[in-house]
C-alpha cells in the first residue's frame, strides 16, 4: 500500500518539467520527468490523460469507471495507488 495519500476531492496536477511523450522507437507512451521516465501501460496512460489540473480524483475515477469494465471500487483503489506511487516519486502533485 502506498504511503502517500490522495483524497477523493484532491486535484492531481502534472508538475512543470514532467510531460507525456510518445516514444516512437519503443512504440509506447512514457511519462518524461527530470532524469527518469515512467513506461506507461494502457491503463496508466488512460489515467494520466484524465489529469487536466481541474478534475478531482473522484471525477477521474468516475470517467474511467464509465469506460472500463471493472467494479468502480477496484478502479478507485487502483487509480489511487497509481497516483500515490507517482507522488512518492515527486512526479505528480495534488491541489487540495
Amino acid at each position: 500500500m502506498a504511503q502517500v495519500g490522495i483524497a477523493p476531492s484532491d486535484v492531481p496536477v502534472i508538475p512543470r518539467g514532467v510531460r507525456l511523450h510518445f516514444d516512437k522507437v519503443r512504440d509506447l507512451w512514457v511519462l518524461l520527468a527530470p532524469e527518469r521516465t515512467i513506461n506507461l501501460d494502457p491503463v496508466g496512460l488512460a489515467i494520466l490523460r484524465e489529469i487536466d489540473g481541474t478534475a478531482t480524483l473522484d471525477a477521474i475515477t468516475e470517467v474511467l469507471a464509465a469506460k472500463y469494465d471493472a467494479p468502480a471500487p477496484q478502479i478507485t483503489a487502483d487509480v489511487r495507488d497509481f497516483l500515490a506511487g507517482l507522488m512518492e516519486r515527486r512526479i505528480l502533485e495534488v491541489r487540495t
Partner: peptide
C-alpha cells in the same frame, strides 16, 4: 475495455 491494475515501470 478491460481494466488491469496500472504498474509504474521507472527507468542511464
Amino acid at each position: 475495455m478491460a481494466w488491469t491494475k496500472p504498474v509504474i515501470r521507472e527507468i542511464g
